[in-house]
C-alpha cells in the first residue's frame, strides 16, 4: 500500500516553469500547416463552383454569372476539402481561426478588385 506517491510530481511542479500559456498577453504561435480558415485568392478563380459542390457543410456559394465567391464563416468546418478540390489552386488554408463574432455574416468576394466587400 502506498503513501504520498504524488509528492514527487507536486514538488517538481512547484519549482518548474509554469505550464500555463499566458494567452491573451502572449500571442498564440500557430503550427505552419494548422487548418484555421479558408483563404480565397480571386486572381485565378474560374468560378467553376467545384469547391461549393465538395463542401460537406454547404458553406461556400459561387455565382458563376455574377462572378462572386462567398463563404459563410459560421458554417465552415475547416476540413480543407475545397482546397484539395480547387483546380486552379486559388484556395488555401490559413492557420488562424476566424475571430469571435457577435453576428453571423456571409463574406462575399466579387470579381472587380476595388469592389471587394466584406460583409
Amino acid at each position: 500500500m502506498g503513501f504520498a506517491e504524488f509528492t514527487k510530481t507536486a514538488v517538481r511542479n512547484l519549482f518548474s516553469k509554469p505550464a500555463t500559456k499566458n494567452y491573451p498577453k502572449v500571442k498564440k504561435e500557430f503550427f505552419e500547416n494548422a487548418r484555421g480558415h479558408v483563404i480565397f485568392d480571386e486572381t485565378d478563380c474560374i468560378y467553376c463552383s467545384l469547391c461549393a459542390r465538395k463542401c460537406p457543410a454547404d458553406a461556400i456559394k459561387v455565382d458563376r454569372n455574377a462572378k462572386t465567391w462567398s463563404i459563410v464563416r459560421a458554417g465552415c468546418v475547416q476540413c480543407s476539402n475545397c482546397v484539395d478540390a480547387c483546380p486552379k489552386k486559388c484556395l488555401s488554408m490559413g492557420p488562424e481561426y476566424t475571430p469571435v463574432m457577435t453576428e453571423k455574416g456571409c463574406e462575399t468576394y466579387a470579381r472587380v478588385p476595388d469592389n471587394t466587400e466584406d460583409n
Binding site: Y23, R73, Q78, Y97, T98, V100, T102, E103
Partner: peptide
C-alpha cells in the same frame, strides 16, 4: 457571441468569454 471553429480552439473560447 459566436465562437467559430471545428472544433473551437481553447484560445478562441477564451476570446469568446472575454467578449
Amino acid at each position: 457571441v459566436y465562437v467559430p471553429g471545428c472544433a473551437a480552439r481553447p484560445e478562441a473560447i477564451i476570446d469568446g468569454v472575454a467578449k
